[in-house]
Structures are given as structure tokens and as C-alpha cells.
């Protein structure tokens, strides 16, 4: 695969490590009363769609950026690539 890095342009996916579901950006509040439930859900349950999937990739053999890819799991087509820090900072955590 080729990932269109938002800063560096097209890079071979071999340079990256995939972590998985971008919902991991939405870490719950550890002090909330339902933290046991929200952390279980956060850590263990996945939507796992056959279709558009938002997921985290790390440019480990490159600039060490964490990226959020929007990718179709049926075709591997990549629809969007964003810097994870931009996604979080702009509030659109997922």
C-alpha cells in the first residue's frame, strides 16, 4: 500500500506500523463513576466494519508521526490521511 502522508507525500506502507481502530484516540475519563465500563469498551470492543474504517498508523520508519487513515477494508482504498495530533486538537477525536 502507499500512504499519502499529509506532510511527506506518498510513502510505502512498509514504513508504517498499524495500531488499529482510531477510537483509541478517545480515552475515557479515568475518574468518572463508570470508568470500569468505559475503559472496557474503549480497550476491547471494536466496530470492525467491512467498509470505511478509521485507524491509527505510526510512521515508525520515517518521521514518527501518528496518522489517522480513513481506509476501505474491502478494497484497501485510502480515502483520507490526517495527522493524529491534528485530529485530536481539532476535537474530531474519531
Amino acid at each position: 500500500m502507499i500512504i499519502e502522508h499529509p506532510l511527506l507525500g506518498p510513502r510505502d506502507s512498509q514504513e508504517f506500523t498499524c495500531l488499529g481502530d482510531a477510537s483509541l484516540l478517545q480515552r475515557p475519563d479515568a475518574f468518572a463513576g463508570d470508568a470500569a465500563d468505559t475503559f472496557f469498551d474503549y480497550q476491547y470492543l471494536r466496530d470492525n466494519p467491512a467498509g470505511t474504517h478509521r485507524e491509527l498508523w505510526y510512521h515508525e520508519m520515517g518521521d514518527r508521526s501518528w496518522l489517522v487513515l480513513t481506509r476501505d477494508t474491502r478494497t484497501h482504498e485510502i480515502l483520507a490521511v490526517e495527522l493524529a495530533s491534528d485530529v485530536v486538537t481539532s476535537g474530531g477525536r474519531s
Partner: peptide, 18 residues
Amino acid sequence: AVGVYRHLEFVRQCLRPD
């Protein structure tokens, strides 16, 4: 060493970019 560095970058960029 490699895994911890990756984890720290995850925390830094994905959880607390602030």
C-alpha cells in the same frame, strides 16, 4: 526500547497533543 518509544509517541500525539 522500540515498543516503549512508540507507546510514548502514541501518548504524546494521540492522547495528549496539548
